[in-house]
Structure formats: structure tokens, C-alpha cells
Design a protein around this nucleic acid. Structure first.
Lengths: 354, 354
DNA sequence: TTGTATGCGTTATCAC
DNA sequence: GTGATAACGCATACAA
């Protein structure tokens, strides 16, 4: 039926206009008279025309594609980031070509080549394999989210601030011993700032603290085993002390919480837990977890805003125009739920105002 | 530096070959002599050539694009499906253009138009808005996953079988009262089969049962409230009876499990719970949940396999070739964990063999 | 084994 | 306001 492809040529013959006029109808309709527009409009319907954006992209150099390289989508954080990014189609009209990165640098570079072969107008990089120094060399608009970004534009959550808020909250609640549990983080990764934020806050408040860095392995089992060991150690070493534990993510915190519940059947006052990420799991657990939200929605909105700016800029002036590198930070939010509560002592009252 | 775009023309001049020969180097290299190949190979490096797949696609009609329309990515199930689908790039080489569907039919149809404008070779539809009858009319290879599929090729999890396995397991374990909790499911949706599978199995085994359909609302709060009411009812109506509860998904089951733990501090023998989906949460809960895995990996592998077949077929014969509609089912898997266990009575021993 | 000519469906540059 | 013509970068039928 409508199998044969209708092109501008067909419409031109049908309407007795030229190809150029048909093209103008789409790109600069104001140049056409009202009647001409109406004639073409009708012809499109009569002939059942469907646009070919490949041809368009080839001719004008604008693919409307944005590439995304993301480590995976089974982690809540990445899934939500991708979710939000894809949602911006309505606003900006860019289509997304998505690749799963983080295998190794070479493979990821092949992905970028593939994306470039389709003339992507911009790239959003969440994967960690390619140093920012090399990303710059592709000479296209790139924005990174939550990764090493020394030489390139980026949007990051303010990890330092997030850690400060979590730590201060635990201190305000009257914890006497602060513990931070984290995994091995690559140098330059923004998440490292959480450790600094934690330690600085403890020192400033003159409170006892300990930073525990573990290798959590690559499987659920290893992670659970590691948390279990940490739990046993806590029970043994800090029994009777009011502990405030700040975990690097919600999963570690929930695993810990489950161990506590299995042993006690409830969360003893001497334990206060704070997670990170505000993943769905933080609300599906036996007690709803106090956590730090990275404000993913703002993170992605900002990322797209900046990327669109860069892409627009590029269309106008072909002059490279050396703008200083942009590192934007999004302030996280402490979400207080049921795994932290003020202990009944003076400290928690005075700390807030001092 | 390497800003100017190198084309086949440049390579042709550089090597004293013609454009066609350069093209052949990429598409039918065997036709070239070894020396010619070597010369061109070197020229590509010297000139720093980068292929333009837009031009290629325009010329040969093969975009290498597959469109995906998926309701969202914050639900574990969809996130994992997308994760797996994107992972097939290594195997098949198709690039994925991803859209978030399920707003309404009109918008989703616009997405499809957009995808068609980029000459996608095939479409994977997970969203529910567009009836299969209308999907067929686009006249391109389409495969649906877990949705209404009357008029179109599809891959579905065998929901009936999944429900049977879950129910039979509860019966074998000695439950005297079977309950199935589900939400309001649109007609024709494959998930409906779970209800049938549950009820049929109960009837066959002559065991008491009840099917509870609730409107779980659109927010976490509403869902929790509904589960809470269901829990209270269970406690009141079926106290002392060995209940086997089969939930439509892991989230409902976990919410229920949390309520039990908050009340009792453990899972009493009179409760046995089975979820559905094998979401990550099933293993992060206070007790690891017995659940039915949809075998997402096989679901997506099969989907891509079939889609690739259809796409290949289409390239060869332009004859529409009426093949019968394919409805493939993937067998789910019962994953037994800590929320079910055989009760000590004869029943659990004999039931299996009868 | 390689070259010539034409087409893919648009946009862009002039010209009228 | 509108039209002719040359790009865009590659593929392919037909020659040689």
C-alpha cells in the first residue's frame, strides 16, 4: 500500500512546486505564501509522506543524536540517570544512542568511534574507562557526570557536602563514635570527596572517628561477607558506644541493617545509620533508611542544559572559542528517615546552633 | 588539527584508486588484490579517516539502528531488560535508539515516526500503549516483549507456568490456604496468566484459595497502605492457618515481609511467601525471598535473535512473505530462598509424586 | 581487479 | 516567493 517511499521530488511533481520549495516548507515556512503552504500540507497527507532524517542529517550535518556511554543499568543510580536523560527528549528533541561502557578503554573508544560515525552532536559520558584528557581530543561537545573530569566539562554531585551533611547529622544526633564505610575508589573519582567530607567534619567537631575501606569484591556474596565481618567487628569493638555509621551507599547500609535486625529484632539506640544515593531500596527496607540523595533529576537536567548550550554554540561559530572548563556541582540533600534519631542528651540540642 | 573530514574522494586521490575501489575495500575487500588493500589500509591511517555511517545508511538503506520503546527504567524489570538488550551490541552490531513510552498512544506513535525517520531496521516494543494491530501496520520488523501481542511476533515469559510453579511449591510445602495478591491488569496482558495459573493449580490440588485484586495506586505510599490492609486482614481472618501467599511481584512480597518482621521479629511458620521477578530487592531484604525469575537474559536473547532473523530476511527478499505470527515463550524459574520451607507433615512428601 | 556513472533524500547557494 | 543546481559521503549496476 504505502510501501513506496515518497520524497520531495514526488511532492514537487504532485504540487507543481520545486524540490527547494518543499524543503522550505519544512525549514523556513515563513518564506512561503499561505496558499502554497496549504497546498503542500495537503499533498503530504495525500501522498502519505514520511520524512527521512538520515538524508537531512547528511545534508545539513545535524544528526540530532546524543551519545550516552553508561557503565550499566542494573545499578539503581545509573538506571535513574538514564531514565531522566531519556526523558529530556520532550524538551530538547535530541535522540539518544546508548552504549554500555566500562569494559575497557579500547572497547569504549570503539563505541565512541561508532557514535562519531553517526555524527552525534554531543556525548554524555558516565563511564570511567577513558581519561578526560583523551575525551577532549574528540573535539565534540562532551559532558561527564560523576567521574574524573580534570580536562572536560562536567556535572557532579557535591560529594564533599553530602558527606558533611550526613556526618554532621550523626554528630548532632549524639553519636560518640563515627565510622565511615567505603570501597576502594579510583584516584580523581568525585566519590572520594565523601571520605574527606566525613573526616573533616569529624575533626572539626572533635569527635572520634574511623574510616574503613574494604574491597567489597565483585559479587553479592562477597559484599555480604564483607559487611558481615564489619558488623561483627562493630559488635565486638564498640559495644555500648553510640555509633554513627555513614555508608558509601544504601546497599551496604541495608545489608548492615538486616544483620542488626536479625540479631536484635530492632535497631538499638546505639546504632545510627546513614546511606548514600537514596536508591529505591532505602525505602523498601525493614526500616526506612536515612540517606543522602544525589538529586539525580537536577544532575541530568543540568547536564543536558550545558550540553545543549555547547551543541548550539558549535552550530553557530565554527571557531573553537576557548571557554574555560566548566565543573558544575549539584548540592545533595539529606533525607532523614528511620535509621537515625536524636539521642536524649544536651549535645544534640546545642550542636545545631553552635 | 584533524578537523577536515576525509572522504572516499580524498583517499581515492591519495591512492590513485577510484572512489568505488575505496568503497569495495570496506564492503567486499576480497575483490581487491592484497597489495591494493595494503595501500588503502595505510592511506586510511595516513589521512586519519573516519567512516560516515549516515551517508552509508542513506546509500544502502541499512541504518544498523534498532528502536526500543520501553515504559521506564526505574523499575528493576525494565532496567534489566534494557541492560541486556544494549549488551547485545557486541554480538549483533545493532545500535539502539531508546525512547521512554507509555505516556499515551499518540505520543508513542510520534516516537515511532521519529524512529522511522531514521530508518530503523527493527523495533522492540515493551510499552503497552499501541495495540499490536496498529504495530503491524508499520510494516517493519517488530518484536514485543511481555505485552499484548495478538497480531505480532513476541517473546513472553510463560506467566502461567511461573504461577503454577510458585503455587505448586507452596502446596508441596504444606500450605493449607493459598492466597494470590495482584493488581488490576489490563485485558490481554500476559501477566494475567499468573492468576489463571494460580487458580488452576489450587483447584487441581483441591486446596482452599483466594485471589485478591487490589488497586495499588500510583505512589509508594498507596502501595504500602494497601499491603498494610491486606496484612491486617490476613492476621485477622486466617490466624493459625498455614498460609501460602503468592505475590504478583517482589515489591509487594517484601513490603509484606517487612510488616511481618516488625510485628514478630521473625517469619512465623504459618506464613510462606513467594514473589515474582527476582528483582535485586529479593536478595537485599531481611529474609531472602523465594521468587519466580522471568529469565530476562533469555527473554532478551531470544527477542534479539528473532528480530535479527526478521531484519536479515527483509534485506534479502523484498517479498512480504507471509510467515505465521510467532509467539515464543520463555520458561521461568522458581528460585527457592528463605521465605518458604516444607512444613513437617506427610503432605509435603506425597504431593510431589502424585 | 578496477573505473564510470548514477542514485540515496535532503539542504544550501545562487539566481530570478 | 520560487526554482535550478550543486553539494553531503557513500553504494552499486554496469563496463572495461
Amino acid at each position: 500500500m504505502s510501501s513506496k517511499k515518497i520524497t520531495f521530488d514526488d511532492i514537487a511533481t504532485y504540487t507543481n512546486f520545486s524540490k527547494s520549495t518543499i524543503s522550505r516548507y519544512f525549514n523556513k515556512p515563513d518564506l512561503l505564501s499561505e496558499e502554497s503552504q496549504e497546498i503542500i500540507r495537503q499533498a503530504l497527507i495525500d501522498l502519505n509522506y514520511h520524512e527521512n532524517k538520515l538524508a537531512r542529517a547528511l545534508a545539513n550535518g545535524q544528526s540530532e543524536f546524543v551519545g550516552i556511554i553508561i557503565p550499566n543499568i542494573y545499578l539503581d543510580y545509573y538506571a535513574e540517570v538514564l531514565n531522566q536523560l531519556l526523558g529530556t527528549f520532550e524538551k530538547h528533541g535530541y535522540k539518544f544512542l546508548v552504549f554500555l561502557g566500562d569494559k575497557n578503554k579500547e572497547i569504549e573508544k570503539e563505541y565512541i568511534e561508532e557514535l562519531l560515525a553517526f555524527n552525534i552532536e554531543g556525548l554524555i559520558e558516565l563511564s570511567h574507562s577513558i581519561p578526560s584528557k583523551e575525551l577532549v581530543e574528540y573535539n565534540i561537545p562532551v559532558i561527564t557526570i560523576e567521574r574524573e573530569d580534570e580536562n572536560i566539562n562536567s556535572i557532579n554531585s557535591d560529594n564533599y557536602e553530602g558527606a558533611v551533611m550526613a556526618t554532621q547529622h550523626l554528630i548532632n544526633n549524639g553519636c560518640d563514635m563515627l565510622i565511615h564505610v567505603n570501597t576502594i575508589i579510583p584516584p580523581n573519582a568525585p566519590a572520594r570527596k565523601r571520605i574527606e567530607g566525613f573526616e573533616d567534619t569529624c575533626i572539626q567537631n572533635k569527635v572520634q572517628f574511623k574510616t574503613c575501606i574494604y574491597d567489597f569484591g565483585n559479587s553479592r556474596e562477597e559484599t555480604e561477607e564483607t559487611i558481615k565481618q564489619f558488623f561483627d567487628e562493630c559488635e565486638k569493638l564498640y559495644s555500648g558506644i553510640n555509633k554513627g555509621i555513614f555508608f558509601a551507599n544504601d546497599h551496604y547500609a541495608i545489608k548492615f541493617l538486616n544483620l542488626i535486625f536479625k540479631k536484635y529484632g530492632y535497631l538499638p539506640d546505639e546504632y545510627q545509620l546513614v546511606g548514600y544515593d537514596n536508591s529505591p531500596i532505602a525505602q523498601d527496607s525493614i526500616l526506612k533508611l536515612t540517606t543522602v540523595s544525589q538529586q539525580i533529576s537536577e544532575l541530568t537536567t543540568e547536564a543536558m542544559r550545558e550540553l545543549v548550550l555547547m551543541m548550539e554554540e558549535r552550530k553557530k561559530s565554527s571557531s573553537p572559542k576557548k571557554i574555560p572548563i566548566l565543573h558544575k556541582k549539584v548540592k545533595p540533600k539529606l533525607i532523614i528517615r528511620d535509621t537515625t534519631k536524636p539521642l536524649n542528651n544536651i549535645k544534640s540540642l546545642t550542636d545545631g546552633s553552635m
